[in-house]
């Protein structure tokens, strides 16, 4: 059973890395700031899910708090950029 789970997760990892590269292409190509923020959003949320799969593969629970914090930071990035774009003020 163990090898069945580990092999499946390693195969899933390659698809994740492929979609990360496609997001990075949009990040570099994005004409406007908000396109880049979109790419970072999608990249960050998928990275959080990827960290969970990695923590199963590495048999080490230390990655879970990291993915929770990453999710919150990606949301904070959204709100900061939205505040900056709309009202030209960083939320002091």
């Amino acid at each position: 059973m163990e090898s069945w789970v580990i092999n499946f997760l390693t195969i899933a990892m390659f698809f994740y890395i492929a979609s990360f590269l496609l997001y990075i292409v949009r990040l570099l190509k994005g004409p406007t700031i908000s396109d880049m923020v979109l790419a970072i959003d999608a990249l960050g949320y998928d990275l959080a899910a990827f960290l969970i799969i990695l923590s199963i593969l590495f048999r080490n629970p230390i990655l879970i708090p990291c993915s929770i914090v990453l999710t919150l930071w990606i949301y904070a990035l959204d709100i900061y950029v939205a505040k900056y774009l709309e009202a030209k003020e960083m939320s002091e």
């Binding site: 406007t32 908000s34 923020v37 979109l38 959003d41 949320y45 959080a48 899910a49 969970i52 879970i64 993915s67 929770i68 999710t71 919150l72 990606i74 949301y75 959204d78 709100i79 950029v81 939205a82 505040k83 774009l85 709309e86």
Partner: peptide, 20 residues
């Protein structure tokens, strides 16, 4: 993490869309 992404994903993209 799944609950956080579920809630924050929609809210964040809405904020960005409104600002844009």
């Amino acid at each position: 993490v799944a609950l956080f992404i579920f809630i924050l994903g929609g809210a964040g993209s809405h904020a960005i869309a409104r600002a844009t």
